[in-house]
Structure formats: C-alpha cells, structure tokens
Simulated assay, not measured.
Amino acid sequence: MFQVKKGAHLAVLLGCILYGMTGLFLAGIHSLPITSIIFYRLFFGLIFIFTFLLVTNRLEELKPGKRKFRLFLQGIFITVNMFFYFLCVKETCFSIAILLEYTAPIYVMLASPFVLKEKVGKESVAALVLAIAGVYFVIRPEGGFGALEFSGSRLIGIVSGLFAGMLLAVIIMNVRILKRDYSEFAIAFWGTAISCILMLPFAFETSFSLLAPNLLTLIVFGIVSVGIGGVLTTIGFANLQSQTGSLLALIEPVAGVFFDLVFLGVALSAGTLAGCVLVLAAAVIVSYSGSSKPAMNFIGFADSTEIVEKY
C-alpha cells in the first residue's frame, strides 16, 4: 500500500485547496439563491461519498455506533456554521466573513488543552500569529477594515462571523473525538447527511428551469468540495492535533486567491502576496513540527493513524 509521510497534513491541505475553488464554481452558477446552492452542493457530495463506499464494499462503516448524539450534533454544527457564515457575508462583506471564520484556530488553541488534553507548543503559537496575520493581509479590503462601519446590521454580521468561527473550532475538535468510534468516511457522510436533511426545504425554492442549466456545475461542485474535499479534511482533522488541523485549514483563503488570480483574472496586490507567504510559512511550521507522528495510509483511509489520546 502507498504510504505517505505526513499524510494527514497533506489531506487537510488538499481538502482546503479544493474548498478554495468555491469562488470558481460560484462564478459558473447563475440565478440560484445561495440556500439552494448549499443544498445541492451537500446533496451531490453526499451521493458521491455513498457511491464510493458502495463500490468499495464499505457501507458497514456507516452503521451508527457509540456517540450517536455527538455524531448528530456534528451535522447541526455544520449547518449552523454555514448559516452564520453567510449571514456575516450578507451583513458585512466576504473579506470580513472569511477573516472571522478563520479565527477558529484561536478558539481551538484556547480550548483543546481542556477538551482534548492537547499541549500548546511554541511552534503552534508562532504559526498562529503568522497565519492570522497572513489571512488579514490576504482578505484586507481596500482602505482597510477601519474604513468600514461596525454598527447596526453590520454589528450583527460581525457577531455572526465570530460565532461561525467558534463553531468551526467545535467542528474540528468534535472530529477528533468522533474518530474514536467512527471512520473518517462515516463522520463525513453523517455530518453531510444531517446537514442535507436540515437544508431540504430549500431544495424546492428553485424551479427546474433555473436549476437545469446549473446542474452539471452543481454536481461537480458537490463532488469536488464536499465529496472529496470534505472527506480529505475530515481525514486530516481526525488524525492531527486539532491545533495543527485548524492552522493548516488557513490555506483555504490562500487557495481561493490563487484560483481567482489564475482563472478569474482577479488582480493580486503586494499585501495579498505577502499574506499568502505568511500563511504558507505557518503551514510549513506546523507540518514539520512533531515529525515523529506516524504515516497515514492513503489507500486504506479507515485504517489510518489512530488517535492516541484518551479523552
């Protein structure tokens, strides 16, 4: 079997790079409300995960075991996280929303020593400072955040973004706990399935005449983002310290900037380039710290590195 050193790190990076393609897919989807896009993205991703497990004779992994309620909560957390993230986008702007969403590593670093008994290393702290600074430069709007008004509905958006970041931290740490009883595919499947069910009412707010021209893009979007990207990030989060996983996830806005530059022709400022370098430097630091961690089996995902902490 193909063994790759630092496989869990690579899984998070690859998964978040696929998440970073969201802007490309959204640019190709027309006349659909965001709620419908979210539902069909989840739906087609869920079908992909189920189909993969079916053809590989691994459907038994989906059998609920212990911690069923925590598994159910994972789907709730994912859905509520999406709601508050998009509320933040609506009331403020994309730049502020993604910055607040990616405050998650701060909450993870504060909570993981108590929730998961993880130690906070100097490398993690240094990487956190670099990564947050990098994300700030990557998404900093022209004129700076100080030029924006933070009152009324905008204040609601800011609070929503902060809450979305907290929920993302909870999602990352919850994966670590669920890995004790479930495979990464089962965690990804049930989290997506529950979110999909909760978003089901929005499936019918779009007519088929509007859906049909966007169907192929939505299918690919779901497979790439949720089906492959979601599973890869779950694999990584399950087999890394939550601090490391949350920091590596900051590669997503950098990937988004790269795809916007290459495929959509969005200009790349010097500040954005500097921010990308800082985030990449943070990823290098957390990837090469703790090099004694075992390799991960990229073929047999269900047999990948087990969690050694006992919560």
Rank of each mutant, 00 (worst) to 15 (best):
F84V: 14
V138Q: 08
G28D: 14
V266Q: 09
G152W: 13
I177S: 08
Y40E: 00
V308L: 15
Y311F: 14
P33D: 15
N57M: 15
G300R: 13
T305Y: 02
F52Y: 14
A295F: 04
F189L: 10
V108I: 14
G227W: 02
F202A: 06
W190D: 04
I235F: 02
S289I: 07
G15I: 15
A249D: 08
A203C: 14
N297Y: 02
V120A: 05
A238K: 02
L167S: 01
G23I: 08
R140T: 05
T22R: 00
V4I: 15
P113N: 04
L273N: 02
A193F: 15
L162E: 05
V231P: 00
V115K: 06
F204V: 13
P253A: 08
R176D: 11
I172W: 10
P113C: 06
M21P: 01
I106W: 00
E142P: 06
T192I: 13
P294H: 11
L247A: 03
S153R: 10
A8T: 03
A164E: 12
V257L: 15
S160W: 03
Q243H: 05
A193C: 13
F221G: 04
Y182M: 11
T234L: 01
V266D: 08
I106P: 00
A212W: 14
L24M: 13
L261K: 13
V226R: 03
F185P: 03
Y102N: 03
T233P: 00
Y107V: 01
M1W: 12
T56G: 09
A147D: 15
L10D: 06
C16F: 11
L73S: 10
L162H: 04
K5F: 08
T22Q: 01
V224S: 00
P294F: 15
I47H: 04
L13Q: 07
F44N: 08
S292M: 13
V220E: 03
I172Q: 07
E91F: 09
L211A: 08
V220Y: 04
L268K: 13
K90A: 09
F259M: 08
G157H: 02
P253M: 13
T233C: 00
K119N: 07
I17T: 15
F189T: 03
N81H: 14
R41S: 02
K117M: 09
T244Y: 06
V226A: 05
T272H: 00
M109A: 09
I96K: 11
V170F: 06
L53Q: 06
G300C: 11
A255F: 11
L155E: 09
F237T: 08
P213H: 14
